[in-house]
């Protein structure tokens, strides 16, 4: 569904991504792991069109999207779910959700999807008239996931859904993400620092380190491998050399 070939991007003159190759197959949940400052967010921005891609190409559904603008990419069916802190705190829960459906014009379909989102996250329906700034951290995370679904995407990219949440809440959120993948057949790229949770959810994982894909492999193999944890914790490249996983 999504394929990246040698993607390079950065800010100003500073190159952050130094040739990323990655594939997200139809219907799969793929994890992208990495610590702070490794290029995770930059990669998401490059895929979503918020940052220009310097070289390489990004294909979505076989179509190149690296020259498109963000709203065109949303229309193509690829939606980035922002972090919870990036809801619109001054708007109500329902306004946030309806904003997610901005690119659509089928009113009936939007209504139906709103109910579907409320089905996944009943608490949002209860609080739909409240300002989203008043929601708890977990509820806001549900809101941004729901808002992403309102665009009726073919694929969503989750930006650290576990950020700043209590472990029990994280478990809840990940269960719902799993359900969304199963019920809607949604293709999902989950970008995480919480390595263990992400690998439990995903079928395949990539570890990004210093702007490059450093490791990749089946989630089951990766979960037991210390290399991942080390890479994530900021261990040096030499420490985490692992022939079994290294590409």
């Amino acid at each position: 569904m999504l394929a990246l070939k040698g993607v390079e991007a950065g800010y100003g003159k500073l190159k952050i991504l130094r040739g990323i190759d990655m594939t997200v197959p139809d219907g799969a949940i793929i994890a992208l792991l990495g610590g702070n400052g490794t290029g995770k967010s930059t990669l998401l921005k490059a895929i979503s069109g918020l940052l220009p891609v310097w070289s390489g190409e990004i294909l979505f559904d076989g179509e190149p999207i690296h020259n498109k603008r963000p709203h065109e990419i949303v229309r193509a069916g690829l939606v980035q779910v922002t972090q919870g802190k990036d809801s619109y705190p001054g708007m109500t829960v329902e306004e946030n959700l309806m904003l997610g459906a901005f690119s659509r014009s089928d009113r009936a379909g939007v209504r139906a999807d709103l109910e579907k989102v409320y089905g996944f996250f009943p608490i949002l329906k209860e609080r739909r008239k409240q300002l989203s700034g008043l929601l708890s951290g977990g509820q806001v995370q549900m809101l941004v996931v729901g808002r992403g679904l309102m665009a009726k995407p073919k694929m969503i990219m989750l930006d650290e859904p576990s950020a700043a949440l209590a472990p029990k809440v994280v478990l809840d959120i990940f269960k719902q993400i799993n359900r969304i993948s199963r019920d809607l057949g949604m293709t999902i790229l989950v970008v995480e620092q919480n390595v263990r949770m992400a690998l439990l959810l995903a079928s395949y994982g990539y570890v990004i380190h210093d702007g490059k894909i450093h490791l990749e492999g089946d989630a089951k193999d990766m979960i037991d491998d210390d290399a991942v944890r080390l890479a994530y914790l900021g261990g040096t490249v030499a420490e985490v050399e692992s022939p079994a996983l290294h590409r």
């Binding site: 979503s48 918020l50 709203h71 939606v79 990036d86 708007m91 904003l99 901005f102 690119s103 665009a151």
Partner: peptide, 19 residues
Amino acid sequence: LAIRAVAANKDIAYLMGVN
């Protein structure tokens, strides 16, 4: 709604599919 979204945060509005 889209105008208010743009006023509050342009990047997020872009990611919602707002031109």
